[in-house]
């Protein structure tokens, strides 16, 4: 017999099953060879080392932003600013990757550190506005996304742009700045190690330190935290700094790990994807690994599908929307939980 406490696990599973079912349905409607196409979507990411590599490469930025958003959501902060910070820190890192001359140890270190710190500081602004004056962090963070994008694009177009290149891209990064690959035959880079270490650290921070404890209590019940003597305004600013640092590092690592020039002319979307990753992970740092891999997997599946069959990869955004709508739906399957509770109450 199921108990109400397993509810969340069952619900997450149900959401994934439903969203995959919708994916199959769309494929069936659109494709001339549905069975083959579904096969590609599901299995092709595992078919070669290169494809597996693609999944992991895709998962790296998702883990960064997923982790950043998880911490914010943990503190009950509705801040979607990871998007803009991811982008802007990428720009900052690019500047240093282009203009600094350092050895291949220091160069990425300095460039990533700069991107991360800029990210932390930018993220702190909505945090401070929220903590001090209760300015809605959601609206300010959304506005910041657009502002940072505008400034970043300006920097790209006016200061970094390589006129000799055919597309709207920056000058080439110095070789020394780029992150090294860690698995032959793939483009998986040292960013994977960085993000996994970061996730483990975040886990320890959240569950094993007093600061993490303050963060969790503030998120669950700010009144309770205040009553217990915690300085909740400080906690809110702290979580913004940390999340901005992580999101900024994500942008920096992505740029140095995957590209040789800066070339984002629109927001890459990883920040909002991070919200999806965080939701699937139930805001648990360690679960972020699995949920980012899942999302990366279906995306690479969709990419390969569009290359090898007649269904365009944009299908995945429909699936992502379905996942978000269902995973954050409190009432989804709630009737079932209520029945369990009623039963348990009667038995007690």
């Amino acid at each position: 017999m199921f108990k109400s406490k397993y509810f969340e696990v069952i619900r997450t599973t149900a959401v994934i099953v439903i969203s995959l079912a919708i994916a199959f349905l769309i494929i069936t409607l659109v494709s001339d060879h549905p069975v083959k196409t579904i096969g590609i979507f599901l299995l092709e990411p595992l078919s070669t080392k290169g494809h597996i590599g693609n999944v992991v490469e895709m998962a790296i930025p998702l883990m960064f932003t997923g982790l950043a958003v998880s911490l914010l959501f943990r503190a009950n902060m509705f801040n979607l600013g990871a998007e803009g910070i991811f982008y802007f820190s990428g720009v900052v890192t690019s500047v240093l990757a282009i203009h600094l001359t350092l050895n291949s140890w220091l160069h990425p270190l300095v460039a990533i550190a700069a991107g991360s710190i800029v990210g932390a500081l930018l993220s702190a602004i909505p945090g401070i506005l929220k903590a001090k004056w209760n300015a809605n962090e959601l609206v300010t963070s959304l506005m910041f996304n657009n502002i940072l994008f505008g400034i970043g694009l300006y920097l790209l177009n006016y200061h970094l742009r390589d006129a000799k290149a055919f597309a709207n891209v920056s000058y080439k990064f110095e070789k020394t700045a780029q992150l090294s690959k860690i698995f032959q035959g793939t483009r998986i880079h040292t960013g994977l190690i960085i993000v996994v270490v970061l996730i483990v650290l975040a886990h320890l921070f959240l569950y094993k330190t007093k600061w993490g404890y303050e963060l969790r209590m503030t998120g669950i019940n700010r009144e309770f935290a205040r009553y217990s003597g915690m300085k909740t305004a400080k906690v809110i600013i702290m979580v913004h700094l940390i999340a901005g640092f992580i999101a900024g590092m994500g942008g920096s690592v992505e740029v140095l790990g995957m590209y040789s020039r800066f070339q984002w002319t629109s927001l890459p979307g990883y920040g909002l994807d991070g919200a999806l990753v965080a939701m699937l992970a139930k805001n648990n740092p360690l679960s972020v690994i699995a949920s980012a891999l899942f999302l990366a997997y279906i995306r690479i599946g969709a990419d390969l599908m569009s290359r090898l069959s007649d269904v365009p990869s944009e299908m995945i955004s429909i699936i992502q929307a379905v996942i978000i709508l269902l995973i954050s739906a409190e009432q989804f399957l709630k009737f079932w939980k209520n029945r369990m509770l009623l039963k348990e109450a009667k038995e007690a």
Binding site: R216, M217, F224, Y227
Partner: peptide, 12 residues
């Protein structure tokens, strides 16, 4: 409202 954080553990 103040005395407890409902979604946290007893120990927390």
């Amino acid at each position: 409202r103040q005395g407890a954080a409902g979604e946290a553990s007893i120990s927390d």
